[in-house]
Structures are given as structure tokens and as C-alpha cells.
Write a protein that binds this DNA or RNA. Structure first.
Lengths: 130, 130
DNA sequence: GTAACTGCAAATCCTTTGCTATGGA
DNA sequence: TCCATAGCAAAGGATTTGCAGTTAC
């Protein structure tokens, strides 16, 4: 893969985002640095970066989002405020081991997404603890 | 939600499928019973059934699939043969409890998908155990 | 009777692709 | 120099929507 300032900028935006941007959001962000970049270029580069495993595509509630790969994590989507959080990958090695053993498969990646209510929205009383 | 034979047939096809059909596959299957059904009707009903939580939409490798909700399960996608398997939801209650406690959230649903190599393909030597 | 539902076709939305020009190695 | 990559605009594909007719209740 050859260098281009467009691809560098796109990768940088994804890596520095904590909010799992969509292609469109990435496009507008990169446009601040490279005003004449085209949306086609953003899509092409996102695909190239996903193929190269430099970033990850995650599909949440009917929309594609892009995610840096800095560490293993789960995702949590709050149904009240629609925020998408990163969660620590609690127990993941243990879980993978158990599943591999029980099902006799070899696992090399995962996508773990929980839905529910975040602490913030629970405090607002939008949902009771139970 | 009012009764219609189209919706009944669509729900039945999803419930009786073990292969996580796409909208298109469901359309062709329902067409055997109701030859003049339109694709638009299939999409409309799939959305209605998902909204009513009678079926689940799962997005795997860039394609939407539909899944019955008979029991809790994980999904496993084999990178070699592209088969999508249902796996037992090993340890799920324990995992949810741990995550809820650690992250202070309330979880009411999840999507857990593993990627890797299935037993079948490993036996064919497409990938080594390790 | 009437509101929900259907089939059909057109519209919409997101993403990809073809083309020519540019730029990195 | 040469080939990957860019920008632009048109094409593509999946899904949704508007409308007029039909059906469940």
C-alpha cells in the first residue's frame, strides 16, 4: 500500500475518534484538512484500511461505524441515549477458550455488542435497577 | 398488528430456517406459497417483525440475515467455508453479570459473533490446531 | 366502514465503479 | 517511468416509499 495524504488523514481521524464515526462523519472531518477530498476516496480508503486490518468496521443498528484497533473491547449501545460505548473485554480469553473447547472451533476474532441502559440514563430514572 | 397471510408465511419461513436467510432468500421461499408476493412486502414485514421482536436481524459480513428467537445463542462465521453456525450461549449469564457489575450498566440483549475456522474446515487441513 | 395491508413502480440512500489526471517510489 | 491513488460523476444494489386497490376485524 502506497502512501497518500488522504489515507493518512482518514486513518488518523479513525484512530483519534472515540465515537465510532461513520463514513460520512469521517468524510466531513477529513475535509477540514483536505477540503477537496471526495466521498469516493473516503470509502475506498476505509475499505483498504479494513482489509489491511488497520481499522475495524462494526455494524450497529443498521449503520456502519469504524473503529480503531488499539485494544480488545466490547461495545455497548444505550437504547435511551443511543450512545455507543467501548467496554473492557471482560473475561474474553476465558470465554473464547470455553467456546472453542465446547464447539470444537478455532476462533480468531469476535464482535461482542450489548444493548441496554447506560449508568447515566439509569440515574435519570429512565429505567430502574433490578 | 393485523393478520395477513403474507406476514404469517414470512414468519414461518424465518422460524423454520436454520440457515439465517437474507431478505432475498425469504422472498424466494415465500414465493413458493404466495407466488405474487412482492419484495417490498417482504421488506415491510421483516421490519415489522423485527420491531415486534418476533425475529432478529443480524448483520454479518456486510449482509443482513434474519434469525428466529427460539433460544439464546451466539453466532460463529467460518472464514473458510463462509458457513454461519449457531453456537450454544456458553456462560452468557455469567458474562452479562460480570459486565453489568464492572461497567455499571443494565444489559437487556446482546449480539455475539465469533469468526474463525470450523471443525469441518480444520479437518480438511485448511488450518492447524494450535 | 375503516384503517392496515398488499402489489407495483418509482424514489432514495449508501456505496462502488469507470474514467482521466496526478503523484509517490 | 509506471502503477497506485485521487477526484468526479455516473452506475449499482438494497431498501423504502407513494399510491391505488384490497382485506381483516
Amino acid at each position: 500500500m502506497r502512501y497518500s495524504k488522504q489515507r493518512e488523514s482518514i486513518l488518523e481521524v479513525v484512530n483519534q475518534s472515540s465515537n465510532h464515526p461513520t463514513a460520512e462523519m469521517i468524510y466531513w472531518e477529513v475535509k477540514k484538512q483536505i477540503p477537496n477530498i471526495s466521498l469516493g476516496t473516503v470509502y475506498r480508503n476505509l475499505n483498504a484500511l479494513v482489509d489491511a486490518s488497520l481499522i475495524k468496521r462494526i455494524h450497529i443498528q443498521d449503520v456502519d461505524h469504524y473503529d480503531h484497533r488499539k485494544d480488545e473491547h466490547y461495545h455497548f449501545c444505550c437504547r435511551e441515549c443511543q450512545t455507543l460505548y467501548d467496554l473492557e473485554a471482560t473475561d474474553i480469553k476465558n470465554l473464547i477458550q470455553k467456546v472453542e473447547k465446547k464447539e470444537q472451533v478455532k476462533i480468531d476474532d469476535y464482535e461482542i455488542l450489548f444493548y441496554g441502559t447506560c449508568m447515566h440514563c439509569m440515574k435519570k430514572g429512565l429505567r430502574e435497577w433490578n
